[in-house]
Design a protein around this nucleic acid. Sequence first.
DNA 1: ATGGTGGATCTTCCA
Length: 264
Amino acid sequence: MLKIATWNVNSIRVRAPTVLEWLHQEQPDVLCLQETKVEDDAFPSDAFFQAGYYATLYGQKQYNGVAILSKHPVTDIQVGWAPMRKEALGPSVDNAYRLVAATTGGVRVMSVYVPNGESPASPKLAYKMAFMKQLRLYLDQCADPSLPCALVGDFNIAMEGRDVYSTEAMEGEVAFLPEERAALADLQAWGLHDLFRKYHTGPGLFSWWDYRMGSFRRNIGLRIDYIFTTASLTARANGCHIDTAPRQATQPSDHAPVVATFSE
DNA sequence: ATGGTGGATCTTCCA
């Protein structure tokens, strides 16, 4: 059995004890992290190594930062758009420490943190859209849909109406704009399955809840964290769920981990 | 109507 998870931890410094406890309990083979918010030298790699995990890092001070923790040896590490052909790089779409890829446990794993976008009128939304376009080109050039691949992370976009707490409230709001959802669909069209929806069809199932206004208690949330898998990996899947327990704990991240299991 | 909370480079920026 192979267990792969993703979790936006909103600062690994603050969340390291929580993540270590979760790893101890859940024993995933791979845990992809987003919003680590530390330079690689400051990442608590030793603590994770002691817990049985190799840490593959791509972080900076203060903002963003992604990582892949794995029990298995890691090869072919790539960060950001580095492996892309120069002529295919869009007009200076900064990768901003938002993508790290590595092969581990027989799977090409990509941990991504898509920009938030802020609001419909913000230049940050234009950056988000450019990032999504660049990510699709990255898949075209640097990954192979015929191989077992897992593109996971915080995409900051809810796919469908059932992925938001209220379609009325989210109408015209960032994370649920038609152009964002189209960009996510275009990403999937490369050859990816939204694994969670293979097992759960209902509404009200979210991966993120605002820290404010008691959103978690009221289940006012969005499903914006995904495990996307290529066909050969999808075929091996046994289950996929969102673990809401860490969101209930003290000093939580605003995101919950998404977990998937596969046959060997 | 524009708050509410949390993290970090904390009279601000980002989510």
